[in-house]
Design a protein around this nucleic acid. Structure first.
Length: 456
RNA sequence: GUGGGUGUAGCUCAGCCUGGUUAGAGCGCCUGGUUGUGGUCCAGGAGGUCGGGGGUUCAAGUCCCCUCACUCACCCCA
């Protein structure tokens, strides 16, 4: 080991060219989908005042906040006053509380950004990861809930993920479930956690775990029987319907389902044991799954109480979040890409055979770039052999040679790496030749990329 | 946090059970196969305190103990 450990801190990653490019494309796709649904971008600081974050994520979540020690003369105190953001929902709540009256009502925003959790890293689990959130603050109708789900489904579809299933449930229906089976309120959350594993461990497994968690035998048997029924959902729904609050939840789920047009992008099912994110959710909750991964790739729900924690008035809100890292995992596998790979190379790699040629080669390269061709001028020294090998590894389409011979005759030599075909042609014909071979339309200048030259 | 697994060359690993001359392979890397031609091929080369510490032994990569790191399952999440 070297004196300094040069591997990234555990739970973080170095992203190589191919990784970054894939992520950029993915973000752009998600962004477009969200904007098509009327969401606007918002960005907030990477760190917040500590007190903004505390008391929002529950006891376990609180432990996972990355705290930032006080600086300067207070450094010795060892106290923290700031913290890295833990998610994007709480910062949104803060923004709504701070600028509420200036924002459109309802305020629909999306945010794609890194968040940090002092978690124990594992597979598909990082201490720094990208969240991709959409939320509607100030929307108290089911249209808001439906919009979030539709936008999430559209984003997943736009990414090329087929076969997504949306699991729907409702916080009130969950309360109703607990009450209808006679499970004590105190055991409710624990029992729901066990029920949530149904798909994983089956009815028997759930029953066993419920017993372990102290649920009475009568309730366990009743649940076991219903979970083993030919149509477990129908059996559970019938039971939940015997509870008033449960009925409220069931009706809301039905109303929400009725609002979702069948776009063919995803299957929507009522999943009465879906219990995720029980923390601050107050109404409908949802989760999206994909057959390629044994975990959720998106989730969300209604949380009417959170924003009110920062202000005087409660603000109803509903949101959702895409599990970008997991989606990228699926996409990377689908496309057979390996981490650490190179991105697509430049159109042309220009060799510099002799240091004295440098100014001339740079000038030729500048001319080609002006014609819309990307040119990488080799920045290392060495023989032609080495430079061509580098061109090959960089994935350049062409190698350009402009040495003493070419300069003397006002020409350039272009070699297409894939075929080995090589031509020497007049200098002023190079751009046209390249544009033709690269399949670029003639005439246009550099591609529009948002770059503008500023004149002071 | 509980239990299992793995740490040997830049990477993936073999060698360990049945201690014993200079610790290996594949890939990668570097050089060469004459003048300005890559990807293929051929030849050569560099690179390892065997995660760290202690112990047993004439002798430890190999056996024992401790420690650290990584990893899988449970838990929790995105």
């Amino acid at each position: 080991m070297p004196p300094v450990d040069v591997s990234p801190p555990s739970g973080t990653r170095d992203l190589f060219p191919a990784d970054v490019l894939l992520r950029r494309r993915t973000f752009a796709t998600v962004q477009d989908a969200f904007e098509r649904h009327g969401f606007e971008p918002l960005d907030t600081p990477a760190f917040e005042r500590l007190e903004v974050l505390t008391g929002k994520y529950g006891e376990e979540g609180e432990q996972l906040i990355f705290r930032i020690l006080r600086r300067g003369e207070h450094a010795a105190s060892g106290e923290a006053d700031l913290a890295l953001r833990y998610d994007l929902t709480v910062p949104l709540a803060r923004v709504v509380a701070r600028y509420g009256s200036q924002l459109p009502q309802p305020f629909k925003r999306y945010q794609i950004a890194s968040v940090w959790r002092a978690d124990r890293p594992g597979r598909g689990r990082f201490r720094e990861f990208t969240q991709c959130d959409i939320d509607i603050a100030g929307g108290d109708t089911l249209v808001a809930d439906a919009t979030v789900i539709l936008a999430v489904v559209d984003a997943l579809a736009a990414l090329g993920l087929d076969g997504v299933t949306v699991h729907l449930n409702d916080r009130d229906a969950l309360h109703g479930l607990v009450a209808a089976y006679g499970i004590p309120e105190a055991l409710g959350a624990s029992a729901l956690t066990a029920l949530d594993k149904l798909a994983k461990v089956g009815a028997d497994g759930v029953a066993a775990e419920l017993r372990e968690r102290g649920v009475a035998a009568g309730a366990v048997d009743a649940l076991h029987a219903d979970l083993s029924a030919a149509d477990p959902t129908a059996a559970l729904v019938a039971r939940i319907g015997t509870d008033a609050r449960g009925r409220t939840g069931l009706e809301r789920i039905a109303a929400l389902q009725a609002l979702l047009p069948d776009t063919g992008a995803a299957r929507v099912v009522h999943d009465p044991v879906l219990a995720r994110g029980l923390g601050y959710y107050t109404g409908p909750v949802f989760e999206c799954t994909h057959p390629a991964l044994d975990a959720s790739i998106a989730a969300g729900g209604r949380y009417d109480g959170l924003i009110g924690m920062f202000g005087d008035e409660p603000v109803p809100a509903v949101g959702g979040s895409l599990g970008l890292e997991r989606i990228l995992l699926i996409l990377a596998e689908q496309q057979g890409q390996e981490a650490g790979g190179q991105g697509p190379g430049p159109d042309v790699l220009a060799t510099v055979l002799d240091p004295d040629d440098a100014a001339d080669v740079l000038a030729v390269a500048a001319g080609l770039r002006a014609a819309g061709v990307s040119v990488d001028v080799y920045a290392g020294g060495g023989r032609m052999k080495k430079q061509l090998r580098h061109a090959d590894r960089r994935g350049a389409r062409f190698a350009l040679v402009r040495g003493a011979d070419e300069r003397a005759t006002g020409s350039v030599t272009l070699k297409e790496l894939a075929t080995g075909e090589q031509t020497t042609l007049p200098e002023d014909a190079a751009a046209r030749f390249l544009r033709d071979r690269l399949g670029r339309a003639d005439g246009a200048g550099a591609d529009a990329d948002g770059t503008t030259s500023e004149t002071a």
